[in-house]
């Protein structure tokens, strides 16, 4: 069953739950059983709610908080669809990598506004602002505009240095959602591959690659060359005999 389907009628309820969210003390919560639905929602984001510690080292209180967040819905279908359109305008597919929706950025945004409730009103209100502006100009909501019309509005709010006074609120919203989309994208496998980050794995660091040293004209100083770690000696047990202070 579609979670949004069941909760569609509860938009008001989701407002209420956001208050609960800030008001309760997570230190006192106990994790409960995780429903299949919640597990699948987690998997959409890369989280394994079935694993010990939810797969990322959560304490019992933190697990309970996550489960509570996953059991709630904030954005309705219309809002989610609008976020998806905006997200792909902000991060489209290109020759290097896929798009924001490929990286499930809208699902991330749905989670993060529940996790950080201060995003809720600016995001919801910003989406409303966008629809209002679309209706005013084209008599349609934003997601139903054609691409050219969408870009016309986005161009008016995407460049903070040149925003007409009447679009200031829209520009503020666009900067916020650009932040969330960018961060949501570059913290996924797709985004990290795009960026070329190649760490987070065991290795034996032996300094800056030589061609990079040359390119930047930055070299290790002779007086230190012999004192730096030699990676092949890492497994040796240090012998202090003969060490003098």
């Amino acid at each position: 069953m579609d979670r949004r389907e069941t909760l569609k009628t509860l938009v008001v309820g989701s407002f209420a739950s956001s208050f609960v969210l800030t008001g309760c003390n997570p230190d006192h919560m106990e994790p409960g059983a995780v429903s299949e639905e919640e597990v699948n929602l987690g998997k959409d984001l890369g989280v394994d709610l079935d694993a010990p510690g939810h797969g990322y080292g959560r304490t019992p209180a933190e697990q309970a908080r996550d489960e509570m967040l996953f059991s709630q819905t904030f954005f309705n279908d219309h809002e989610m669809a609008t976020i998806a359109v905006l997200a792909d305008i902000i991060i489209p597919a290109d020759e290097v990598s896929g798009s924001a929706t490929d990286a499930k950025v809208p699902e991330f945004i749905e989670f993060i506004v529940k996790d950080m409730p201060y995003h809720q009103i600016p995001m919801r209100g910003g989406l409303m602002w966008l629809d209002h502006e679309s209706n005013r100009r084209f008599d349609k909501v934003f997601k139903d505009l054609n691409e050219e019309q969408q870009i016309e509005i986005v161009d008016d709010i995407a460049y903070p240095d040149d925003v007409a006074p009447e679009y200031q609120a829209g520009a503020r919203f666009f900067s916020n959602i650009r932040n969330l989309v960018t961060t949501g994208f570059y913290t996924t496998r797709i985004g990290i591959d795009d960026l070329g980050y190649v760490g987070n794995q065991p290795n034996a660091w032996d300094g800056i690659p030589e061609e990079v040293q040359k390119k930047h004209n930055k070299f290790y100083r002779d007086e230190y060359k012999d004192r730096f770690l030699k990676p092949e000696e890492r497994e040796e047990i240090e012998d202090w005999s003969g060490y003098e202070l």
């Binding site: 394994d48 797969g55 993060i112 996790d115 950080m116 949501g184």
Partner: peptide, 13 residues
Amino acid sequence: WPWESPRRGAGST
């Protein structure tokens, strides 16, 4: 990895 946290490692808790 950052995506193993649904909030991508943010400091909420």
